Amino acid sequence: MVAKSDTAIMLMNLGSPDSTAVPDVKKYLLEFLMDKRVIDYPWLLRKILVGGIIVPNRAANSAEAYSKVWRADGSPLIALTKQLQTALQHDLEIPVEITMRYGNPSPQATYEKLMKEHPNLKEVILMPLYPHYAMSSYETAVEYAKEVYKKKNYPFTLKVVEPFYDRPEYIEALSESMRPYLDQDFDHLLFSYHGLPERHIRKGDVTGSHCYKVNDCCHVASAAHKQCYRHQVTITSELVAERLGIPRNKWSISYQSRLGREEWVKPYTAGLFETLPKQGVKKLLIVCPAFVSDCLETLEEIAMEGKHSFISNGGDSFTMIPCMNTHPTWVKTVALLCKEEMAQYA
Rank of each mutant, 00 (worst) to 15 (best):
H327W: 02
H200S: 08
S192L: 01
P277T: 00
Q232P: 09
M135I: 14
I235R: 13
K250Y: 07
P23D: 06
A63P: 15
V240W: 06
H210K: 12
E117G: 03
L336I: 13
W70A: 09
L114V: 02
P155H: 05
H90N: 12
A173K: 06
A65C: 04
L33M: 03
E117F: 01
P197E: 03
G51T: 13
F191S: 11
I171M: 03
K226P: 08
H132W: 03
Q279F: 03
K339W: 04
L337C: 09
H219E: 11
V287S: 12
L189F: 02
M178F: 11
Y212V: 01
Q89C: 04
H118K: 01
E117A: 13
P168M: 04
V69D: 01
A290E: 02
A8K: 10
V281N: 01
T207Q: 06
L244K: 05
D183M: 09
H90V: 14
D6I: 11
V265N: 05
H219A: 05
M304F: 05
A8H: 12
S309R: 14
E305K: 15
K36R: 15
I311D: 00
A303T: 07
L276P: 10
W330H: 15
D294T: 11
H219Y: 09
P131Q: 03
P76K: 05
A72D: 11
V142C: 05
W330D: 05
L114S: 02
Q108N: 08
W43Y: 14
L174Y: 14
G74D: 07
I39G: 08
R71W: 13
V292M: 00
T333E: 00
C323G: 13
N325T: 10
L158A: 08
A343S: 14
V161G: 03
S252R: 13
L196W: 01
P56D: 03
R179C: 00
L190P: 14
S309T: 15
F273E: 02
V214A: 07
P328N: 03
E340M: 10
N313S: 09
R58C: 00
P107C: 09
T99A: 15
P289K: 01
G208Q: 10
P119V: 03
V142D: 02
L239G: 04
L92F: 05
T7M: 05
C288F: 00
R71F: 09
S209C: 07
R199I: 13
L239D: 04
G15L: 08
A270V: 12
P23M: 04
V96I: 11
E305D: 11
D216V: 10
Q256F: 10
Y193N: 07
L92D: 05
N57Q: 12
H194T: 13
Y149C: 12
D6W: 01
I39K: 11
V240S: 03
D183V: 11
E305T: 14
I302Q: 01
L182A: 08
V334N: 07
H210I: 10
H194I: 10
R101P: 00
R258N: 08
G260H: 08
M324T: 15
T99P: 11
F191I: 14
S312A: 15
V331G: 08
E147Q: 13
V96T: 09
T207C: 07
K68P: 03
Y181F: 15
N104D: 04
E341D: 00
C218L: 06
